[in-house]
Simulated scan of single mutants.
Amino acid sequence: MILHNLFGRHIPDHQRNRWEGGYFVTQCTLCGQAMIKLPGLPWRLRPSSA
């Protein structure tokens, strides 16, 4: 497992940021996993059901 997965240090790619289904959506610049956020909240990994 990648260390940044263990410590939650995913870095959002702000240039790929887009609005989708009520969330800002992008991907981690380190591993490419999907990330989401609501306005005013921090980025987090996108759950498989979102």
Rank of each mutant, 00 (worst) to 15 (best):
K37Q: 11
L30E: 03
Q33K: 15
L38V: 01
F7P: 00
M1W: 12
P39V: 00
G32W: 03
Y23A: 02
W19I: 05
R16I: 01
V25M: 05
W43T: 04
G22C: 05
T26V: 00
L41W: 14
S49Q: 08
G21W: 06
L3F: 13
T29E: 14
R44Y: 11
W43M: 04
M1Q: 02
F24C: 02
G21E: 14
Q15E: 13
W43F: 07
T29K: 07
R16W: 07
S49P: 05
D13M: 09
I36S: 02
F7G: 02
L3S: 09
A50W: 12
E20R: 11
R18E: 04
W19P: 06
T29R: 13
Q33I: 10
N17G: 06
L45G: 00
P47T: 03
E20Y: 11
N5I: 07
L41A: 10
R9D: 11
W19H: 11
F24E: 14
S49A: 03
I2S: 10
Y23H: 14
R16F: 09
F24I: 06
P39I: 05
S48F: 08
G8N: 13
P39E: 11
E20S: 09
R46L: 07
H10Q: 02
Y23F: 15
K37N: 01
N17W: 07
C31K: 05
G21Q: 13
S48P: 01
F7T: 12
P47L: 07
F7I: 15
W19F: 09
P12C: 03
G8M: 02
D13Y: 10
H4W: 02
G40I: 01
A34E: 09
W19N: 06
A34G: 09
H14S: 13
R46Q: 14
R9A: 07
R44D: 03
C31N: 04
G22Q: 01
Q15T: 08
L45Y: 10
K37D: 06
G21Y: 11
I36L: 14
L38W: 09
G8C: 11
L30H: 09
Q27W: 09
R46S: 07
A50P: 00
C28F: 05
W19G: 00
L38D: 08
H10G: 06
H10E: 08
N17R: 15
Q15K: 15
Q15D: 12
L41I: 05
Q33E: 13
C28H: 04
L30G: 06
N5T: 10
G22R: 10
L6M: 11
M35P: 02
G21I: 04
T26D: 04
Q27Y: 09
P47I: 09
C31V: 02
G40S: 11
W43Y: 05
P39G: 00
N5R: 12
Q27R: 13
R9Y: 13
H14M: 15
L30T: 04
Q27K: 14
W43C: 05
V25G: 01
G32F: 05
N17F: 01
A50C: 07
D13E: 07
N5S: 14
I36F: 12
G40N: 12
H10F: 07
L3I: 11
N5G: 04
L3E: 08
A50R: 11
N17P: 08
N5H: 15
L45P: 00
M35I: 01
